[in-house]
Design a binder for these strands. Structure first.
Lengths: 110, 110
DNA sequence: TTCAATAATTGCAATATTACGATGAATATT
DNA sequence: AATATTCATCGTAATATTGCAATTATTGAA
């Protein structure tokens, strides 16, 4: 159907999936890296850095905003995008604990 | 177009995006959690745990295999799925360093 | 060989995502 | 006021993803 059955999963599982979406497209990874390195934080600069149309970059920024991992400050006529430290920390602890739940001592069931 | 322009991004960015896809759907998160907790590792058991059809679970398993984060051992007529420790560690270090590149002392550019 | 059990694959439908040109809204500058 | 700049949104096209029923291997057992 193309539609995820959100209701059959836990809140936590759905949130993990959402946070992962921030990193699940190379353009969004690149945008986040650019924001962190502070080589660019204005939409127009991101467009210059990436070989993508302005509309496409804007769409990825919208998705990142929806997830909450960035927020934009209007600085007319520009918009400065920044990492949201709160959600970034949430991602750190979420992926940190998820990835730690697998102990390397675990062996396969055979 | 619906098609990601893979070629304009770095190998690293594309790999991060691919690894993130393992976690970007709640069903795949649930599957990985079940494999880790060892409540289930056989496809049929996963189908019982999740409210999804066998074909759907199989497809998610296929995607996780493509990424490399799990592998299946044939134990006829069953298939036992396991976390691949090598790729799991890759995910740990990849997301670990990516998430660490943002220092909370970073302030926005305004 | 035939049957049962298990899982992969196929085919299909519906929705989501990616991408871009064009347009629109907001605001600074002239 | 008119213009230019910047970014969001709309519309559209193409591809990807999600999900399931049905079918197809595959293999062990009868």
């Amino acid at each position: 159907m193309g539609v995820t059955k959100t209701e059959i999963f836990t809140e936590q599982q759905n949130r993990i999936a959402d946070l992962a979406k921030a990193f699940s497209h190379p353009a969004r990874v690149a945008i986040l890296q650019l924001l962190i390195s502070r080589k660019a934080c204005v939409c127009g600069d991101l467009v210059d850095e990436l070989e993508l149309a302005q509309a496409t970059v804007s769409q990825h920024l919208k998705e990142l905003k929806r997830i909450g991992i960035i927020h934009g400050e209007i600085n007319p006529p520009r918009v400065c995008y920044c990492i949201n430290p709160v959600v970034w920390q949430e991602a750190q602890s979420t992926f940190g604990s998820l990835l730690d739940t697998f102990a390397l001592t675990n062996s396969c069931c055979n």
